[in-house]
Design a protein around this nucleic acid. Structure first.
Length: 425
RNA sequence: GUGAGUGUAGCUCAGUAGGUAGAGUACCGGAUUGUGAUUCCGGUUGUCAUGGGUUCAAGCCCCAUCACUCACCCCA
């Protein structure tokens, strides 16, 4: 394998067998977003580093050690986007979109320099959704209902919904103090990770995986008891809307989310099927971010779906359908026939828009051409030899039942349209 | 960044106690001078991840490097 250049660690190719599935899923997702009135926005894959450090939070792992950051030829400090929220709101500010309410979505690659593992890659794909100018909690509920519909559309039942409210920044600060003093008085019980988080991001101790810490958390002060009145009410209304819609959820007081800009509503859809990276979709409210990035204050709510994780979940529980790739494969043998095959194919394409037709190209015996026709998944094989050309006819073989008919050229289009629409002739 | 496991044909994997590499599948050809998926016959495919070391001899043992996988951390 010497001399072969490989892709960078943690960055993977998506090959044709997979792209057909990705396209299918992406189309479903986009259709539903469109039906809810969300519009696509596209923004650059690279931004000034400052955009991310100012939004995501200086103390987070993303900023501290996971960004692909470099200095470009102008000396500017740039970063491959580790997430979409900051870029999206930057684009909204810059393009004057925040004068009115916005429902937006985007899709694309994100980059984080983490150790790769199952469903976690250095280049990964997210579908992000953001809404600006809605104070909630109705838009919060709308997003959760919409994600629930996405799963229904994909026939995905193995996701469970976790929700929580982080409260306003002020109420969270008060809570944080309480929490720190609680953990300080139990400092000996803390593990190494938790001690590190104690002053930097004490809320994150709450979602530790360590069983001992979990026990310690049970007696910790509860965020719910420190919520400000507005957050409390919003959260109550959110729960009521979800109840009315029949959405099953779990209020998880330990759900705190990692990025600094979240406040009030947060939610996650998790699965226990794909290993340790179990969050498929997550988001929350971030009402202070726009102002923090130099825009005017705008309420905002958003979430992102980890598409790599979604695809691997769908694959694992066998929800990816067998996709028929092609309708018709045209084989041709003989000099005369080969000259006519592309001509016949083009005529068919003209007359049957959307026809999925492969014309055999290159050499190949009759036998090998048929093998290719078979493997292409085509339901019909068209057979053109010199004899057929002379008689102005073509063979049509139904690959599933193995029956073959001879059809005159001028009747071929009608014949195929009949077959494709499932009608018997 | 930390830890563990795995690297042999395009793919999935065997490879006995160190003795110079095998199966299935895929691919190509034939049985059928013009008919696939089934059957039968034949053929091709490898710097055994890379570099060193031990040995008369290394796919196998030792060391290093790289990659992949899983978990921790973190997050979608």
């Amino acid at each position: 394998m010497e001399g072969i250049i490989h892709s960078i660690r943690g960055m993977h190719d998506i090959v044709p067998e997979q792209t057909s599935h990705w396209q299918l899923v992406e189309t479903s997702l986009k259709n539903i977003l469109t039906c809810y009135g969300y519009q696509e926005i596209r923004f650059p894959i690279i931004e000034k580093t400052e955009l991310f450090s100012r939004s995501i939070g200086e103390g987070t792992d993303i900023i501290e050690k996971e960004m692909y950051t470099f200095v470009d030829r102008n000396g500017d400090n740039l970063t491959l986007r580790p997430e979409g929220t900051a870029s999206c709101i930057r684009a909204a500010i810059q393009n004057g979109l925040l004068g009115q309410t916005q429902r937006l979505w985007y899709i694309g690659s994100m980059f984080r320099h983490e150790r790769p593992q199952k469903a976690r890659y250095r280049q990964f794909h997210q579908l992000g959704v953001e809404a600006y100018g809605f104070s909630g909690p109705d838009i919060d509920a709308e997003m959760i209902l919409m994600t629930s519909r996405l799963w229904k559309e994909l026939r995905l039942k193995s996701l469970s919904l976790q929700i929580n409210s982080l409260g306003s920044i002020q109420s969270r600060l008060a809570y944080r103090e309480n929490l720190v003093s609680y953990f300080e008085s139990n400092k000996n019980a803390l593990d190494e990770d938790s001690r590190r988080r104690l002053y930097r991001n004490p809320l994150r101790i709450l979602d530790s995986k360590n069983p001992d810490i979990r026990i310690l958390n049970e007696a910790a002060p509860k965020l719910v008891d420190h919520l400000d009145e507005e957050s409390k009410l919003d959260f109550k209304v959110l729960c009521e809307i979800l109840d009315h819609a029949g959405i099953i959820y779990n209020i998880n007081p330990y759900l705190v989310r990692g990025l600094d800009y979240y406040g009030k509503t947060v939610f996650e859809w998790v699965t226990d099927h794909i290993g340790s990276q179990n969050t498929i979709c997550a988001g929350g409210r971030y009402n202070d971010l726009a102002e923090q990035l130099g825009g005017k204050a705008v309420t905002a709510m958003g979430f992102a779906i980890g598409l790599d994780r979604l695809m691997s979940l769908l694959d694992l529980i066998n929800l990816l359908p067998r996709i028929s790739k092609i309708d018709v494969y045209l084989v041709s043998v003989g000099d005369l026939a080969r000259r006519y095959s592309l001509y016949i194919a083009e005529n068919l394409r003209n007359q049957i828009p959307g026809l999925r037709l492969i014309t055999h190209c290159g050499s190949g015996s009759f036998k090998s051409q048929f093998k290719k026709a078979d493997r292409s998944g085509a339901r019909w094989t068209l057979i053109l030899g010199n004899d057929e050309v002379v008689q102005r006819v073509i063979g049509v073989k139904a690959m599933d039942i193995g029956e073959q008919e001879t059809i005159p050229w001028d009747a071929l289009t009608t014949y195929l349209i009949c077959k494709l629409s499932g009608k018997t002739k």
